[in-house]
């Protein structure tokens, strides 16, 4: 069996007395598209924050291609090849679209602060490299014509795309998408499904997404993991999870008839 790209083992994160996640375990195979679902407040984003290093879990281990990462600072985790987007889009609003992407290449530059101050040749070459790569990514996401705009002036959909382009500048092996379909209408959500698959194929990625839009999750994810109140309630193939009684209860309350669920 191959090493999983990402493995969470019995992770717990506690805020005050609240166990935001409590004993969650799952494995994501390389090049898999993996969905993490659950009602609001279930602990999905907390899990993301543990993986990306924003939080240090109180218990359990997280490994990335066999390497333990729990408790490392976010910058180290990102440098290892885990990139993420944020639920509430965190772009650098007062910087241009191009700069937003270029800055994500900073961790890879090979010149020191003194070379920057004296503007040595090396820094010009590196600058060129970052700009070229950033333009490539912008072109792929059809944002190159907006390269000089401030990112805060972009429409919502373009901001989401830019955030993904910025994450890809890190050359990640694993991409964490936090509610990529949030705020999208059904047509946009539809095309998002294809985009996610296309991302995986083009950039050779493993993708974990947190998502509320069940259409997207059921359609695009190969494995789904459902949490509620910080605990795993179901895990497996999308259809299996969708039909799991505990999942239905979690999402819709105790008494639900079939028809309501189908519509969702």
């Amino acid at each position: 069996m191959t090493t999983p790209a990402l493995k969470l083992d019995n992770i717990a994160k506690i805020f005050g007395g609240l166990r935001a996640i409590d004993g969650v375990s799952f494995e994501v195979a390389p090049r898999q598209i993996f969905g993490l679902i659950g009602p609001n407040g279930a602990g999905k984003t907390t899990a993301f924050n543990c993986i990306s290093g924003v939080y240090t879990p109180e218990q359990g281990t997280i490994s990335f291609f066999g390497q333990s990462i729990a408790g490392r600072p976010p910058s180290q985790i990102a440098a290892l090849g885990i990139a993420r987007t944020f639920q509430n889009i965190r772009l650098f609003g007062d910087m241009t679209v191009l700069e937003n992407v270029m800055v994500a290449g900073h961790a890879t530059i090979s010149f020191g602060p003194l070379a920057a101050m004296f503007r040595l040749r090396k820094q010009a070459e590196e600058q060129e490299r970052l700009a070229t790569r950033a333009y490539e990514l912008l072109r792929i996401f059809e944002l190159d014509s907006l390269a000089g705009e401030f990112s805060k002036s972009l429409p919502y959909g373009s901001q989401r795309k830019l955030e993904i382009a910025r994450a890809l500048m890190l050359n990640p092996k694993l991409l964490l998408l936090d509610e990529p379909a949030a705020g999208m209408n059904s047509r946009e959500a539809d095309s998002l499904k294809n985009q996610i698959r296309w991302l995986r194929d083009t950039f050779d990625l493993t993708i974990v997404l947190v998502e509320h839009n069940m259409q997207v999750v059921m359609n695009v994810c190969e494995q789904v993991h459902c949490v509620d109140h910080g605990q795993t309630i179901a895990s497996g193939e999308p259809l299996h999870v969708q039909n799991h009684p505990a999942v239905r209860t979690a999402y819709l309350g105790a008494d639900v008839d079939e028809s309501t669920l189908r519509q969702s």
């Binding site: 965190r90 650098f92 800055v103 994500a104 900073h106």
Partner: peptide, 17 residues
Amino acid sequence: RAIREDEIATEALGINT
């Protein structure tokens, strides 16, 4: 400048803020 705009996002880009 990225740190000024959003420190958490900068850290998530592999930069030791």
